[in-house]
């Protein structure tokens, strides 16, 4: 390695180190606050005076006002269900637009695209009253329906991916007498692992981070909250002093599965993102 290259290398590693520290400080701050003994959102010292596990313990023992274990189970249930439904629906729609040719295809694609541009929460009062009229308000089923109802709109990344699978595979199968139904299940899906995983991750994460639809559908029924809305309630003006450190602890607990999921499935995630990027 020449002298100049060495200098460049050191410089780049330093810059990267500084940047990654900048990116990790809030994460570190979150973990630190979750072990802090002192209550409240603001402290006079940066480093906590004393550490404790109580914030974590309290989440599972003190469930009178905020029932974190219940929220966690609610979210897990909603996330698993809507993940399965959304993935299936999205892939079906993407396959149709990518492989099948029919009269209204182009129009449907454009309409779907445009509908996705509407700010989601504009329709929420309508959805709330619709749910209420069919007796589904304040139920987890309503949340699942809301999260997976728009699945037909998020087809384009998966469609971009399907477009890259050679059509000669389909043709060979058709010559062997396979119907389109068989082609979808036996040829397209097995070849699309990255995009299946990518769609599933996105659908799985959505219920963990959405707090808007939950507040509309569940109103003040604390027991039916998901973690995102629950955590949000923990830091509103009335509760922030008492619950701020518990909020941090809960946030850490919610983040751990997502971090693990990300690291484990990073490979698929990247290929999913680039399939979308390179194909629009």
């Amino acid at each position: 390695m020449s002298n100049r290259n060495k200098k460049i290398s050191i410089l780049m590693h330093t810059v990267l180190a500084i940047l990654s520290v900048l990116w990790l400080i809030p994460v570190f701050w979150l973990v630190l606050s979750s072990f802090r003994k002192e209550k409240g959102a603001y402290t006079s010292t940066l480093w906590p005076k004393a550490f404790t596990f109580d914030n974590y313990v309290k989440l599972f023992t003190d469930t009178r006002l905020f029932n974190f274990p219940k929220w966690f189970c609610n979210t897990l249930f909603v996330a698993v269900c809507s993940c399965i439904i959304t993935t299936i629906l999205t892939l079906m729609v993407a396959y149709v637009y990518s492989r099948l040719r029919f009269k209204s295809r182009k129009a449907l694609m454009n309409i779907s695209l445009v509908l996705g541009m509407f700010p989601g929460f504009m329709s929420m009062i309508a959805i709330y009253h619709f749910m209420k009229s069919i007796g589904l308000d304040q139920t987890l089923l309503a949340l699942i329906l809301v999260y997976s109802g728009g699945a037909a709109l998020n087809y384009y990344i998966a469609k971009g991916f399907f477009d890259t699978i050679p059509i000669s595979l389909d043709e060979a199968a058709r010559l062997d007498g396979a119907s389109r139904h068989v082609i979808f299940w036996k040829i397209i899906l097995p070849n699309s692992k990255p995009i299946v995983v990518n769609t599933a991750i996105n659908a799985f994460i959505a219920p963990w981070v959405d707090f808007i639809f939950v507040s509309v559908i569940m109103k003040d029924n604390y027991d039916k909250y998901t973690v995102a809305k629950g955590l949000f309630t923990m830091v509103d003006k009335a509760n922030i002093f008492e619950y701020y450190t518990s909020f941090c602890a809960a946030a850490v607990l919610v983040s751990i599965p997502i971090v693990l999921l990300f690291i484990k499935l990073q490979k698929y995630y990247v290929s999913g993102v680039t399939a979308g990027a390179s194909k629009g």
Partner: peptide, 10 residues
């Protein structure tokens, strides 16, 4: 990427 895994609202 670790920062991505923490929910945005948190």
């Amino acid at each position: 990427m670790i920062s991505v895994a923490i929910p945005q609202f948190v």
